[in-house]
C-alpha cells in the first residue's frame, strides 16, 4: 500500500522517539508501514503467512535493536530495505528449495475489478499493460514498482538492489521505451474512448 505522505520532520521525530524507547512512536511507525510491508511482500510470495512472519520478526528486531539504530535520511527507505532483507531470510528458512529473490508476477489478476472500468477499450488497454508488465524481467518490474509506486529515488533503488544508480536509470528508460511502443499501438483506442 502506498503510504500517505507525512511531513518528513514529523517522521524523523517519530523515528527518533522510537529509537529513544518511545512505544507509542514505535506503534505508530509500525502501523503506518504495515500495509506497505504486506504489499511489497506479496510481490515475492503468495504465502501470506511467510510475509506475516517476516513482518513480525522485523518489528521485534527493530524494537530490540532500537538503541543501535542511527538517524536515517528516509525512514520509509530504511524500513523497506530492512523488510526486504528480513523477507528473503524468512523465505530461505521456509522453503526447502533454494530461494531466488524473484519479483514474481503476483499482480493484476484481479485488476479488472480493482478500479473503475469505463468501457471496453479501457479494459483492453489494461490487459495490454498487464501483459507488458508481466513479460518484463523480474528485476525491471521491481524497479518500476519501487520507483513509481513506492516513490523511491533512483539512488535508493540502487542501494536496495545493490546495483549502480546508472543501471537503475537505464532499466527504467528501457522499460518505458518498451512501454511507449505498446502505447503507440493503443493510441487509436484511447482516442476513440475520448471521443
Amino acid at each position: 500500500m502506498r503510504i500517505k505522505e507525512i511531513p518528513p520532520l514529523q517522521e524523523q521525530l517519530l523515528w527518533n522517539n522510537f529509537r529513544a524507547g518511545d512505544e507509542m512512536a514505535f506503534t505508530q511507525l509500525s502501523t503506518r508501514y504495515y500495509r506497505m510491508f504486506r504489499h511489497y511482500g506479496e510481490k515475492f510470495t503468495t504465502n501470506s503467512q511467510i510475509i506475516e512472519d517476516a513482518i513480525q520478526d522485523l518489528l521485534v528486531n527493530l524494537w530490540v535493536k532500537r538503541a543501535s539504530l542511527t538517524e536515517v535520511e528516509s525512514v520509509k527507505f530504511y524500513l523497506l530495505k530492512a523488510f526486504r532483507n528480513q523477507l528473503f531470510k524468512t523465505l530461505r528458512t521456509f522453503s526447502t528449495v533454494p530461494f531466488e529473490d524473484n519479483f514474481q508476477e503476483n499482480f493484476s489478476e484481479a485488476s479488472s475489478e480493482m478500479f473503475f472500468i469505463e468501457n471496453e477499450s479501457q479494459q483492453e488497454q489494461q490487459s495490454k499493460i498487464s501483459y507488458f508488465l508481466k513479460q518484463l524481467p523480474d528485476r525491471q518490474r521491481e524497479i518500476l514498482y519501487l520507483r513509481f509506486y513506492q516513490d523511491l529515488r533512483v539512488e535508493e533503488i540502487a542501494q536496495l538492489l545493490q546495483i549502480k544508480p546508472q543501471s537503475v536509470s537505464n532499466i527504467i528508460q528501457r522499460a518505458l521505451l518498451n512501454l511507449r511502443q505498446h502505447w503507440e499501438l493503443l493510441v487509436p483506442f484511447i482516442l476513440l474512448w475520448l471521443l
Binding site: 502506498r2 506479496e42 510481490k43 503476483n106 499482480f107 493484476s108 489478476e109 484481479a110 485488476s111 480493482m114 478500479f115 479501457q122 488497454q125 489494461q126 499493460i129 498487464s130 508488465l133 518500476l144 514498482y145 513509481f148 509506486y149 512501454l179
Partner: peptide, 9 residues
C-alpha cells in the same frame, strides 16, 4: 492504467 497495474491486487 499503468500505475494501477503497477500496484496490482
Amino acid at each position: 492504467i499503468f500505475l494501477s497495474e503497477l500496484e496490482g491486487e
